[in-house]
Computed example of a mutant assay.
Amino acid sequence: MLGKPIRPTLSLPILTVALCCAYSSAAALELDPKAINIKLPEQINWVANPSGSESAVLVGDPSKPGLYVVLNKWKAHHNSKPHSHPNDRFITVISGTWWVGTGTDYDPTHLQAVPAGSFVTHYGNEIHYDGAKDEDTILQIVGIGPATSTPAPAK
């Protein structure tokens, strides 16, 4: 018996037809929109902000009470000035490097780098400033609205 080739039990044409049928039935399967909603990157609506950033609201309305989830894109070479928010905000750095500082004295030479994959909490009513240096940076921000921003008092 040594040296005798093993013959497959299915022929190539039958296997090809079986794989095509399995693929076409899986491709025809549609998700129930009551169970799941997917937004592809090209379907996310980015809006330019005067601060040099762009934002895209994914869930909720940051201007109203309640939970919100926002993507924020800091454009390269743009930073905020010292400010605070009334509620805690929970931020994940999705891409790029985010630069953050604290206190009322804006000093871009003392910003700390926060790389992609990091998680940051901005505590309510505490003064900070942030932005991007040499590359665009995308953040996901989760919080409870309204998400107002109050400039730090001038010294």
Rank of each mutant, 00 (worst) to 15 (best):
N125M: 14
V142Y: 06
S118R: 07
V120P: 09
D136Q: 13
Y129E: 00
K133F: 00
P146N: 05
T121K: 14
L139I: 10
I127Q: 06
Y129P: 09
E135R: 15
P146Y: 04
A132D: 02
D134M: 01
S149M: 04
F119H: 14
V120M: 07
T121F: 04
G143L: 01
P146D: 02
A132I: 01
Y129T: 04
S149G: 15
I141H: 05
T150K: 14
L139S: 11
I138D: 03
T121E: 04
G124A: 10
I141F: 04
S149Q: 14
D134C: 03
T150C: 08
G131W: 00
T150P: 13
H122V: 15
G143F: 02
I144A: 10
G145S: 09
G131Q: 00
I138S: 07
Y123P: 09
V120C: 05
K133Q: 03
Q140L: 10
I144F: 10
H128K: 12
I141T: 11
G131Y: 00
V142S: 14
Y129Q: 03
F119S: 12
T137V: 08
T148F: 04
G124K: 14
D130Q: 11
G143H: 06
D136I: 04
V142E: 05
T137K: 00
H122F: 15
Y129G: 02
S149L: 01
T148R: 07
E126I: 10
A132K: 03
E135Q: 15
P146Q: 04
S118D: 03
D130M: 03
A147L: 08
I144P: 06
T148Q: 05
V142I: 14
I144T: 15
D136S: 14
H128E: 04
E135A: 15
H128W: 08
